[in-house]
Simulated scan of single mutants.
Amino acid sequence: MTAGQTLFVLVGALVLEATFGYPDWLYQRIGHPVSWIGRLISFLDQRLNRESDSTQARRRAGMVALLIIVAVPGVIAWLVEDILDHHVIGPVVVALFASTLIASRSLYDHVGAVARALDQYGLQDAREAVGRIVGRNPQTLDEHGVARAAIESLAENASDGIVAPVFWFAILGLPGFVAYKAINTADSMIGHRTPRHEAFGWASARLDDLVNLPASRLTALLLAVAAMVTPGASTAGALEAVSRDASKHRSPNAGWPESAIAGALGLKLNGPKVYGEVRVEDAYMGDGRRDATADDIRAALRLTATAWGIMVATLLFLAIILQD
């Protein structure tokens, strides 16, 4: 495909995913591409990650596993794209498949469910709803903490689940898109600093940080631009928070969208949190209110929806220019 065709396919994938998501009936029948990659990761984790090995041996095994995790789906995607490139309906098929690896619909649904739970069902239901999208212990959160956690998850996953795959599809086509999802899935499964995965998942965590660098900055920029046309949001606040706070975050990437959304909405996000029974100290993003509410979750959803609209419009504009 030409560069213009690639961007048209990408726009189609974004529209399809935002409209239909990934149907439950299809998931029940065949699973999901990420779950297929997850099975490969689990298999390699069981076979190569031996607790009797030294730290260095487990780190090397993790590098080998990561190479397989990225290469196998990436090569399959390259072959599929090459075959479909010779068929009239090829771009449609690629767009349909690519739509399964973008997460805007599910992200909005899950974050919106937290706001509804806070409004209609009470704190415990809200904790259960936010527990589906965050890794921290939701039982330690009050209502404001639940709202902040939902907004933080929205910001971070907007980068990892939407902007990053879009970026790599635009740059490297379907193979780059699939390879990115494989890296991101590996990080989510074995990239944790636990006794089992501290060494084995080291390479996956580092590579995930690297491939998300461009998207995290782009997401912050999109949110700042979106704030110009979103009632109640501040572009100046977003840019100020990013310049002051983004680099203070434990993650080299999460701080960018989190600080942007915090500054845009006048909130103070992140800070100390509890994972399991472990308290983790982290810097604050933004210098506004800590008493976030369900209304703030909805404001964050409006801001991100505007940002994605700007992204799609930009991609469509570039596709038209490059097609000529």
Rank of each mutant, 00 (worst) to 15 (best):
R105G: 04
F167A: 09
T293W: 04
F20S: 10
W78K: 03
R196H: 07
L269P: 10
N253L: 03
G90V: 09
F97M: 14
V15M: 13
V88Q: 10
S104L: 10
G145C: 11
A224Q: 08
T194Y: 01
G122H: 12
S104W: 13
I41A: 01
H32P: 02
A95M: 12
G38P: 13
V70S: 01
Y108M: 13
A227P: 06
V178G: 01
Q323G: 09
G131P: 11
I37R: 00
A264F: 08
Q323C: 08
I151D: 01
L218Q: 04
G135M: 05
E258K: 11
L322C: 07
L303W: 05
G255A: 11
L118R: 06
E277D: 13
E51K: 00
D125Y: 07
P73K: 00
P138N: 12
S251R: 05
Y180L: 01
G122C: 12
A3S: 15
K248I: 00
L96M: 13
T306N: 15
M311W: 04
R290G: 11
I89T: 09
V11G: 10
A319D: 03
M63A: 10
R196N: 00
S243F: 11
A203T: 03
A236Q: 14
A129G: 02
K268E: 15
A305N: 13
D85R: 15
A179H: 05
I102C: 10
T194H: 02
R148D: 03
F8M: 10
L123F: 12
A262T: 05
A227N: 05
Q5Y: 13
L84F: 05
A61I: 03
T194I: 00
G191F: 12
Y180F: 15
V11F: 09
H249D: 08
I190N: 07
V64T: 14
M63K: 05
D109Y: 13
G309Y: 09
A18M: 11
V278N: 14
A182W: 00
P175R: 02
G38S: 01
L172I: 02
A226C: 02
G271H: 13
Q5G: 12
I68L: 14
I30D: 01
